[in-house]
């Protein structure tokens, strides 16, 4: 009758309500204010009380949605698929998000001491992992069929994952390539850009003209290339940018050099 998700979120709702009541009365609430959302009496600290009541409202809404749609209800899913057997014991699929979450926690811990950026990165990884992990857990119990579950999960998450991963990949490539080009000399930068462009063009041409080339080979080449680029970018960032000449205003237009005080054209 009550699905697992409903029970979890309804429990959260009850816990937040209790927390809001306790918080309200212990921070100056009076009469039945905390019980009546401030209608008759004070609720104490408005912000804390408001946050807790808000969380309770969100939990209640989610719980109602989950029970309405019979989420993770094996009997309902079996009925939907015209299955005679109610499938309740689905295997948990392999997932790398627990490991990613662990590294996120580690990064946050190290960042808390060493650098705020690392801390923020760790938090971002934790949030990302939690979302993905939640989706994996939900999809595992969506139906009794692992292939369908995977399809279902991908249909929801792929439209989010692919653009995000693509944007991150482009960002990393641009950042790493720009560090390399800014570190080597002007002439070498032109040579590096030319050679890499030629390699990409040549590789794409070979792949297009020979569809028989294995995916595995392409994956390995792509991974090696990405790692080389990343390592080059990191090494270049550590080495620092080359010295730039800072042309005066009357000469920069003729030379085509970047302007500004830093000269970091990127």
């Amino acid at each position: 009758m009550f699905t697992t998700g409903f029970k979890f979120f309804f429990g959260l709702f009850a816990a937040f309500c209790a927390a809001a009541l306790v918080y309200g009365y212990t921070t100056g609430g009076n009469h039945v204010g905390p019980l009546s959302l401030g209608w008759k009496g004070g609720v104490g600290d408005h912000i804390g009380y408001g946050v807790l009541v808000g969380l309770a409202g969100v939990s209640l809404t989610i719980s109602l949605v989950l029970v309405s749609f019979r989420d993770a209800d094996a009997a309902a899913q079996a009925h939907l698929q015209n299955l005679a057997e109610v499938l309740t014991d689905q295997p948990v699929t392999a997932s790398f998000w627990p490991v990613v979450a662990s590294f996120g926690v580690g990064a946050a811990a190290v960042g808390l001491v060493l650098h705020p950026m690392v801390f923020v990165l760790g938090l971002a990884v934790i949030v990302l992992s939690m979302v993905e992990w939640t989706m994996d857990a939900w999809a595992d119990r969506a139906t009794g069929d692992t292939a369908v579950n995977r399809e279902l999960r991908n249909r929801i998450m792929a439209p989010i994952e692919i653009p995000v991963v693509g944007a991150l990949a482009v960002g990393v490539i641009v950042l790493a390539a720009s560090r390399i080009l800014l570190t080597v000399s002007k002439l070498e930068a032109v040579a590096v850009a030319g050679v890499v462009s030629a390699l990409i063009l040549g590789g794409a041409w070979v792949y297009a003209s020979r569809p028989g080339l294995g995916r595995r080979l392409m994956r390995i080449l792509g991974t090696v290339g990405a790692l080389l680029l990343l390592m080059g970018g990191v090494l270049a960032a550590v080495a620092g940018e080359r010295e730039f000449h800072h042309p005066t205003d009357d000469t920069h237009e003729e030379s085509g050099e970047p302007t500004g005080t830093t000269g970091h054209g990127g």
């Binding site: 698929q81 057997e85 009794g144 069929d145 692992t146 292939a147 369908v148 399809e151 279902l152």
Partner: peptide
Amino acid sequence: AIADSEAASGAGGAAAPE
């Protein structure tokens, strides 16, 4: 997706094996 899974699971329509 259902059609794929049913094809994979055979005529019985029970849980699809790997």
